[in-house]
Design a protein around this nucleic acid. Structure first.
Lengths: 200, 200
DNA sequence: ATCTCTATTAAACACTGTTCATCATAATTA
DNA sequence: TAATTATGATGAACAGTGTTTAATAGAGAT
C-alpha cells in the first residue's frame, strides 16, 4: 500500500502530535515510541520520518503544545490581577496543571535528548515566553528597576518554581512527609518577591 | 569461561559503579548502557544482573556517589561559616560542581526511571540529607521558627537552587543572553532568606 | 584425580530509533 | 480513455537497547 493521500502533511503532523499526548496520558510517557505513535494513527513507523527529524523532534513538538496551553492558561488566569497576585497565580497554576494531568507533564519534565544534542532554539523560545510573562508582571511591580534586574529576577523565580514542579512530578519531593508543594511555591514566590522588592 | 573469582561481589560492584561514571564523563551520559559498562570492566553484560536489579538500580547507585561527594563537599565548605553565608555557599557550590564536571551531573539530572517505576526510598533518603544540611543552617539562623517552617523553607530554597542547576546543566536557561547562573542563585537565596527572616 | 558447586557466559527475546529501496496509487499527460 | 509520471507510504533491515536463562569453565573440596 502506498500513496493513500488521506491526509495532508499538516493533518498528519497534527495526528501524530495528538497521538503522542494520548499515549503518554493513557499508557505513560515511557510507552511513547515511534512504532507506538505510528500504530496509534494507523501508519507505518517510517512515515513519521517524513514529518519529523527524529523522535526527539516529535516529542519536543508535542511538549510545545503542553507549554503553549500553559502559557494561554496563565495569560487568561492573570487578567486584571495585581502584579504580586499574578506572579503567585502563575506559579501556583503551573504547579496545579503539572500535578493534575501529571503524565503529560512527565513527558515534558522527564524527556531528555536521545543523543545528547542541544535543545533546538525554537523550543527554547517557547520557554522564553514563560520568562516573558513573569517579566511583564515584575515590570508592573517595580517599574524603576533596570531591565537586566527584571530579567534576572524572572528567571530566578521561574526556575525556582520549575524546580518544585519537577521534583513534585517526578516524585522526588516526598521526603519529609507533610509538606504540601503548593505551600512551597507560595513561600518561594512571596518571600523572594518580598526580599527582591525591598532591595535597592 | 566461568568462575574466574578474580573479584569479590563487593569489588565487582565498585568496579561497575566506577565504570558508569567513567563512561558518562568520557563518552557522555547517553552512552552508559549495560553492555558498555560490562565491556569497560571486562565482563559479560548478564553478570551485572547478579549485582544490580536492573540498569536503573546501577545508575542510581552511581548517582548516589555523585550526591554523596557533593554532601561531603558542602559540609567541608561550610565549616565555621555563619548560617547565612553557609546556605549561599552550599547553593553556589552545588551550581559550581554541576557546571564543572557537567556530564557526571547530567547523568544525575537527566536520568529517569526506565519503566516509570517510583524512585526507591534509599535514593530519596540521600537527597533528604541535602535538605537536612539546609535545615541545620536555617535552625541556626532562626531558632525561634517552628520545625515545620524550617522544613518548608529548606525544601523551598533547595528546590529552587536545584531548578537553576537543572536548567543550566540541560542547557535550557540560555534564553536571554547575559544572565549568569551564579547571579541567579545568589539572588534567589539572598532574597528568599531576606524575605523569610522578616516574616512572622 | 574426581567431583561438586557456582561464578560467568553466550545466546536469545522483545524491544528501541532510523534508513531506504520498493511499490501502489493519485495526478498528469497523451 | 490509456499510458506515464510522480510520490506517499511501506516493510524490511541494521544496529542498538534491557533482560533472562540454560549451559559451562574452572576453582575448591574430597
Amino acid at each position: 500500500m502506498a500513496r493513500r493521500n488521506e491526509h495532508t502533511k499538516g493533518e498528519l503532523k497534527a495526528l501524530a502530535l495528538d497521538a503522542v499526548l494520548v499515549i503518554a496520558e493513557r499508557d505513560g510517557p515511557q510507552v511513547v515510541s515511534a512504532r507506538k505513535v505510528a500504530q496509534e494513527i494507523g501508519y507505518a513507523p517510517g512515515m513519521l520520518y517524513h514529518l519529523f527529524e527524529n523522535i526527539d523532534d516529535l516529542i519536543l513538538q508535542a511538549n510545545t503544545r503542553t507549554v503553549s496551553a500553559l502559557t494561554d492558561d496563565l495569560v487568561r488566569a492573570t487578567k486584571r490581577q495585581s502584579a504580586d497576585k499574578a506572579v503567585l497565580t502563575m506559579a501556583l497554576r503551573y504547579l496545579q496543571l503539572a500535578q493534575k494531568n501529571g503524565r503529560r507533564w512527565q513527558l515534558l519534565f522527564e524527556h531528555t535528548m536521545r543523543n545528547g544534542v542541544a535543545v533546538p532554539s525554537w523550543y527554547q523560545a517557547q520557554t522564553a515566553k514563560l520568562f516573558g510573562l513573569v517579566e511583564q508582571q515584575l515590570v508592573r511591580m517595580c517599574p524603576q528597576k533596570k531591565s537586566v534586574e527584571i530579567q534576572l529576577a524572572a528567571r530566578a523565580v521561574w526556575s525556582a518554581v520549575h524546580g518544585v514542579c519537577l521534583l513534585s512530578v517526578t516524585g522526588k519531593l516526598n521526603v519529609g512527609g507533610a509538606v504540601k508543594e503548593a505551600r512551597l511555591v507560595e513561600s518561594l514566590v512571596q518571600n523572594y518577591l518580598h526580599g527582591w522588592k525591598s532591595i535597592d
